[in-house]
């Protein structure tokens, strides 16, 4: 049972990383245009170099 003392904090920590990543994505407005983001990966624009902005 002593393994719980490690496993529970570890699982909470890993889940917390996921939660933070999601919060970061929402704050960064990554959910503002889901349709556009899905379509953009099909276009060849800026495939050779990053968008300058």
């Amino acid at each position: 049972m002593s393994v719980l003392a490690i496993l529970i904090p570890v699982s909470l920590f890993l889940g917390g990383i996921g939660l933070l990543a999601f919060v970061w994505a929402v704050r960064g407005r990554q959910f503002d245009d889901p349709e556009g983001d899905a379509a953009r990966m099909l276009s060849d624009d800026w495939d050779d170099r990053p968008r300058p902005d």
């Binding site: 379509a39 953009r40 060849d44 624009d45």
Partner: peptide
């Protein structure tokens, strides 16, 4: 409505 529209308009 599509990926091509996005690039055309942005360009």
């Amino acid at each position: 409505h599509c990926a091509a529209c996005i690039s055309t308009v942005e360009r």
